[in-house]
């Protein structure tokens, strides 16, 4: 109850920190999506690089977030950007690569060959095939990858507070430092709430983005 009081009392600060959190995650996704999707599409066309790219992204994902901040700090410190939002966004972009690339790759691989043949039979060029057939069919799965990335990034952004990136992690950090349980609890609850809301929102987006024909097909097959 006292946690709720804390949130109500500091409502404007809560809104500001939430906005900061969303901003970091949003910018990172905005940068990561084109890179990941393009890489994912490229490796479906140049199959020989697929395992290398996916393995590389997998290794990036394995590096613990705090260690990644630590490893980037001395490098970015040369450009005087070791702390703050820049390393946070870079780390989030790197972490988003695996889910986005993997989902784009599998989605485009899983487009039924019969459909691709039909498109080719209609005289579509390779580019047109990609734009009008493969990408629209792959979009829901790509958005599922973005959803995974977004939820994970909200968690990593909370940790990025410790390198001065701000966001809702500030409440957890300050709360622990000041032994202020209401502050810790409200930080933890708000971050979790944000993750759950974003997860739900992206799930909705996934459903909207599914082409109508596929939705009907799925309903019939059920």
């Amino acid at each position: 109850m006292s946690t709720l009081r804390f949130i109500v009392d500091n409502f404007s600060e809560v809104m500001y920190l939430s906005w900061e959190h969303i901003w970091i995650v949003g910018i990172a996704l905005l940068i990561a999506t084109p890179i990941g999707v393009v890489l994912g599409i490229v490796i479906t066309k140049y199959e020989q690089f697929s395992s290398r790219v996916l393995n590389g992204a997998n290794i990036l994902m394995t590096v613990p977030s705090l260690a990644l901040f630590g490893l980037m700090l001395p490098v970015l410190a040369i450009f005087n950007m070791g702390l703050g939002k820049v390393p946070a966004v870079i780390a989030l972009v790197l972490y988003s690569q695996l889910p986005i690339i993997r989902n784009t790759y599998t989605a485009i691989k899983n487009v039924p060959p019969a459909l691709v043949d039909a498109g080719r039979g209609m005289g579509m060029s390779k580019w047109k095939l990609l734009r009008e057939l493969e990408i629209p069919l792959a979009i829901p799965v790509i958005i599922a990858g973005l959803r995974t990335a977004a939820v994970m990034n909200i968690g990593v952004a909370a940790i990025a507070t410790y390198i001065g990136a701000g966001g809702l992690g500030v409440y957890i950090q300050q709360g622990i430092a000041r032994v202020y349980p209401e502050m810790i609890l409200s930080g933890a609850l708000l971050v979790s709430l944000l993750a759950i809301i974003v997860d739900g929102g992206m799930a909705l987006l996934e459903r909207i983005a599914t082409p109508e024909g596929i939705r009907i097909q799925r309903k019939l097959s059920r």
Binding site: V151, I159, I184, A188, A195
Partner: peptide, 17 residues
């Protein structure tokens, strides 16, 4: 699934409180 969306730092903070 819901539990997995909760960030790790939040879980640690909750355990501590």
């Amino acid at each position: 699934g819901l539990g997995q969306t909760i960030p790790s730092l939040a879980v640690l903070a909750l355990a501590m409180s």
